[in-house]
Write a protein that binds this DNA or RNA. Structure first.
Lengths: 132, 132
DNA sequence: TCTTGACCCTGTACTTGCTACAGGGTGCAT
DNA sequence: ATGCACCCTGTAGCAAGTACAGGGTCAAGA
């Protein structure tokens, strides 16, 4: 018998998060013991590990839900899976591009800082429209 | 007289977001007209533009609040500003590194996809622990 | 003058992905 | 029998907004 705490340890997902996943229907409600404790099985460990890996790869819970559904239907073509992964890759690439632009802007702002007063601070100046 | 809609247009921040900023105390509640409309001035346009630029640079609302406070005290040293900007740069760089790792993983997953069935899908396989 | 339509007001609930209580019950060892 | 670690439930909170619902206001056109 695997309790919630053990499931948490086995998968690296916090107890509260497991409850949250159960609440939103990502995990099926497990059997209960006589004392009303959740009793998980190896299936649950597997499923939750799947969720964790997908989350680590940046998939949204909604995408994870879809991936789980797809994974259950083993005879189906994996085009849909590929599509989700590609969408995720694209999102990641866009995010990286955005952050690189940000990094450049921040970097040049910081470089100009000469440690004077706020009045002639380049960073504040760059943020302010004309005169603060 | 600048209404909320005009302030939104002038700054590119949505009306609802302006209300939200007012609610959390980032923007001072403005004067009201006889008909209970908010009446903004150029100050508000400037302040909100400042917020927008800072948000665009990825600063949190909390950081923005601090930057606004700092910007108001023009005689002060701008070390604190520099510090916030550096912290933000560091956060951005870390995020970029994370996303690059993610991108590599996703990319290699997708490359292996041979458009077969779910049963031999590499992506599902990589997510599942041993056997799904 | 009336009415239409664009704007404004308020409060509240929803989003994503959790996290953190409070206030109690269970189970095992000492 | 009592202490402690663990479990249970419900609820509220975080960032940073977004989206209604159900009204009020204002200016222009018929």
């Amino acid at each position: 018998m695997i309790t919630r705490g053990k499931l948490a340890k086995a998968t690296g997902i916090k107890i509260e998060t497991i409850r949250f996943y159960e609440k939103i229907g990502l995990l099926a409600p497990p059997e209960r013991t006589a004392g009303n404790y959740r009793a998980y099985g190896q299936d649950d460990v597997d499923r939750l590990s799947f969720v964790r890996r997908a989350r680590d790869l940046g998939f949204s819970l909604d995408q994870v839900r879809t991936l789980l559904d797809l994974a259950d239907d083993r005879s189906r073509s994996c085009c849909a899976v590929d599509e989700i992964a590609r969408a995720q890759l694209k999102a990641v690439e866009e995010k990286i591009a955005d952050l690189l632009a940000l990094k450049r802007e921040l970097g040049s702002l910081i470089e100009q800082c000469d440690q004077g007063t706020i009045a002639d601070c380049r960073i504040i100046g760059a943020l302010a429209p004309a005169e603060v």
